[in-house]
Design a protein around this nucleic acid. Structure first.
Lengths: 209, 209
DNA sequence: GCCATATCCTGACACTGTCAAGATAGGAGA
DNA sequence: TCTCCTATCTTGACAGTGTCAGGATATGGC
């Protein structure tokens, strides 16, 4: 399949039919999607730029034109990841009671949701050194994510650094341990029971009970 | 320096004088030490086996004889890391009051100590996929580390899965956020103030106040 | 002193990220 | 409609990586 005679180039149009021509049309988005697939399949540490290009059906050097180098791709992926991370929290908040404490708990549940649903991407955001966190777009997206829980804590009556750190550390610790499959006593629960457990733990560290 | 004529091989004895001969003497230990240096310098993601060999002053294929492949080196490094991780907790416990609550807080402080002092190794233990956690020695060391905080929680009066998860998630969340430099409001404190903050946060989630 | 064995080195292979140079397509201006 | 400019993508090359095969060297038992 991959050793066609040189005159018979493989059709560059993806089988999905969304590709418009030899010029991919929206290769940047396709590469970001392929990159997350690669991330989920082989982890940050096994990640290969050439494999991403292969997934997207383009040559190994194509990503360079859109992202510069591998760090550029990781940076763009992380920026988008932080936005979706915030979106996961917002989704929970929209379904929760409007009082500040419930909203804070909802944000924590969304934090954990994201870590469980997309553990490899979660690691890229929080533990990887491959994205360039000095990049303006990524820095802004990351700061927005850092700030959200803190804002919720303050809205819920938090007054000290300790209140802020307590809620953040609890949500982050649960998320990370669940993402890596270490906290089996919680991870093996049903989704409903797990939600109740996580919510109870976050309420435990709330500033004013 | 590196292009000596073939008859003039560089002296394989390290300048420190501890090397005993052409056969290194204790290359396994030297490689483990070099691997942690490499880990601290370039992170898990930038890690290079050949660089480790260069740090130890041996050829690029020498590590294979002691560890098989790169995963074997990561596995041995992680096993040793988990033992030192437990040792960091034990060091705090030895200096703390003997009551169960103080011992649990001390374990949490040691947990955080380790993450701050050796963040790259901490990541290898908790977030990397490169060590083989199916390995017997690593599995035993890891389980011992997982279990220690849990045991402390039970000794301090914990009775539920929630108590266990609360202490673990708080300690782990603080450790991870501090290791990655994200929790600046705590990370920028003096060591004494930081200890007090961490201790207070762990006491916050204790089962019986 | 001799030799089996553990230890380490050299050389090779496929794979990786990155760069330079060429090929192709789309759009602006005639 | 034709031409040319530019963005986009491909091809080919390079150094660096992990791993394997085979050769060189030192150690310890006889």
């Amino acid at each position: 399949m991959t050793n066609l005679p040189p005159t018979l180039k493989p059709d560059p149009v993806p089988p999905g039919g969304e590709g418009r021509s030899y010029h991919h049309g929206d290769l940047r988005a396709a590469l970001l999607a392929a990159a997350e697939e690669e991330l989920a399949a082989r982890g940050v540490e096994g990640f290969s730029l050439r494999q991403v290009a292969k997934r997207a059906g383009v040559s190994h050097a194509a990503p360079a034109h859109h992202f510069g180098d591998a760090a550029g791709l990781f940076t763009a992926l992380a920026a988008e990841g932080f936005r979706q991370f915030l979106a996961a929290q917002a989704a929970r908040e929209a379904r929760a009671a409007p009082d500040p404490a419930s909203q804070l708990v909802a944000a924590g549940l969304g934090y954990v949701d994201f870590a469980i649903a997309r553990p490899a991407l979660f690691r890229l955001l929080w533990q990887s050194e491959r994205p360039d966190f000095g990049n303006a777009e990524l820095g802004q997206a990351a700061r927005a994510a850092f700030q959200h829980l803190v804002d919720q804590v303050m809205a819920a009556g938090g007054r000290s650094t300790a209140d802020e750190a307590a809620a953040w550390a609890m949500a982050h610790g649960l998320a990370d341990l669940l993402a890596s499959g270490r906290l089996e006593s919680v991870g093996s629960l049903s989704p409903e029971a797990r939600d109740a457990m996580v919510a109870g733990l976050i309420r435990r560290v709330l500033p004013t009970g």
